[in-house]
Amino acid sequence: MFAEVEPVETCGAAEAAQQVMRKRKTTVRKGNAAVNREDDGCKPQGEWVAHVLRIRSAQDKTAFAELFRHFAPRVKAFLIKSGSTPSQAEECTQEVMATLWHKAHLFDPSRASVATWVYTIARNRRIDLLRKERRPEPEELTWGPEAEPDQADIVSLQQETAHLREALKALPEAQRELIEKAYFGDLSHREIAAQTGLPLGTIKSRIRLALDRLRHAMK
């Protein structure tokens, strides 16, 4: 994760990131026990994977209710921080959570954690709601008819995400705060500069420093 995108440069991290996205699942799979077994210290990541798979394969409303109780208050807070009114955020959160149910068959645990997946759905809905804009998404990757991710890919992706999460928690407050503003405040670096009174150069170097630390932590 977080390899520098420099022309003609490959490093271990870039390869690792590419490995994570090597395959893409097109069908439901069985036997996800390994996902839960492996994520010591970050149990929820794996738990939520199993929840989504239960929604997908068995329309499991109990699993959905648990997922809802965990993520809906976070999504609502995210939308309010990004500028929604509380009533807009309430309605939008319900739509995001319903989308999660309807798109459960598209969730790929070898490409994203459940939190990442929820984040992308909420972000796209926010753009739709607050800006009334379309959100262009990249073309779907096709890997041929029977390409399914193997357990090793799922486990490594979920573990990497757990590492990233720990690394993010370990960041100095000032750096973490800036990243949070960039993601949750719907603010460009320039707007963060205006809001915090810090020079743009300082904002950029703090964000760069934070990303460097995360990259380092991911090695």
Partner: peptide, 16 residues
């Protein structure tokens, strides 16, 4: 694309 997915993962951790 792999980079963009890493940044999405960062967003997911922030949300979590």
């Amino acid at each position: 694309r792999a980079q963009a997915e890493s940044y999405d993962a960062l967003g997911g951790c922030m949300l979590q």
